[in-house]
Design a protein around this nucleic acid. Sequence first.
DNA 1: CATTCTGTAACTTTATAAGTTACAATAATT
DNA 2: AATTATTGTAACTTATAAAGTTACAGAATG
Lengths: 101, 101
Amino acid sequence: MESLRDKNRKPTHGGAILREDMLPALNITQGELAVKLGVSRRTISEILHEKRPITADMAIRIAKFTNTTPQSWLNMQQTLDIWQLQQTNAKAYAQIERVAA
Amino acid sequence: MESLRDKNRKPTHGGAILREDMLPALNITQGELAVKLGVSRRTISEILHEKRPITADMAIRIAKFTNTTPQSWLNMQQTLDIWQLQQTNAKAYAQIERVAA
DNA sequence: CATTCTGTAACTTTATAAGTTACAATAATT
DNA sequence: AATTATTGTAACTTATAAAGTTACAGAATG
């Protein structure tokens, strides 16, 4: 079974939102965006391709430029980070026992 | 003016919750907690003293052990990260202009 | 007072975000 | 079609920081 709310589904990367929704609307090149945000073109490119996380610093920059909140970007990243760790560290986490409620 | 909701106030570190609420209730030593979570005693000590962030990995470990959610711990950390960056990088962020809505 | 627990210094290892430069490939413009 | 702009990415470097280990002094506990 699959659905939009499938918990096992890989969460959305902020870069996808940026790439699919924000950038087209802004009508701006990656190079221009990089200058606006004060980062390198490479950083922008890699975020758009979901090759690196949106860090707290990047979230603040993107948020300011786009009139959104840093939290909205970081929450996405966080959800993804947790999902990824649960995949890669499943064994380690399975060893942790819950305390009695 | 100061209040609990003061936006300029430094946000709470997850370590404070752990130190003040969770640990006392659990009746467990730092060393024991470290073993339970599968990390070093030093890591626990420093988190309790708010000397390091609660990373995604730590959030998952703490959450599993205490029957809470990784998100709740990471959200706190995130809010703190953003607050701290806005203090230290204020100049850089001030340079970023907002796009026309 | 003896044992346990805690804080932290010193040091090492590992990971990774981010920058710069460069170049080939693709896309857009005239 | 030819020119120019834009993009993706490799190679390399730098900087930061999370986490571990060991060790020891001081505080707390029994």
